[in-house]
Design a protein around this nucleic acid. Structure first.
Lengths: 66, 66
DNA sequence: TGATGGTGTAAAATATGTTTTACATCATTT
DNA sequence: AAATGATGTAAAACATATTTTACACCATCA
């Protein structure tokens, strides 16, 4: 599943580490998700969306992998 | 995290088993999620939303557990 | 009564997400 | 040249999600 975390994060002038702090996860988690190592949990997805000021549906590109 | 899966599922006249089939997961998974045993993965959340014809943001009630 | 469909639940196994520690690279600053 | 901040990555440990198998209860229908 694709995501636009890096895009919105940079638009807010946040580093991976700062976003991680705001979401109470490690920097590696943010990095891994941005680089598509794995998808976040639903909880973290909502936390990320809230922190970045977008909806979950807008933050994640739901391709036809379903 | 709260969800409205049961509500939308019944509105569509689907059983837990049928919804499970449509989402390619087991019936127990649907049952566990409806009864808040755990949250679905992000992928499954999108699949459920798509199948039920709603957005992820509308399907899940993001309380202040963040 | 016996069969069927829908739901709730439980344990064990497997898959996936997250943390911690640690190191590497690159750019910028002192 | 050394220090700093941002990013990429890796392995081990731990946490959470999902499957499989199985059984139980209840309602309805043959």
């Amino acid at each position: 599943m694709q995501n636009r975390i890096k895009e919105f994060r940079e638009k807010k002038g946040l580093s991976q580490g700062k976003l991680a702090d705001l979401c109470n996860v490690s920097r590696q988690t943010i990095n891994a998700i941005e680089n598509n190592k794995y998808d976040p949990s639903l909880q973290l997805a909502f936390k990320l969306a809230k922190t970045l000021g977008v909806t979950v549906d807008n933050l994640f590109l739901n391709g036809e992998e379903n």
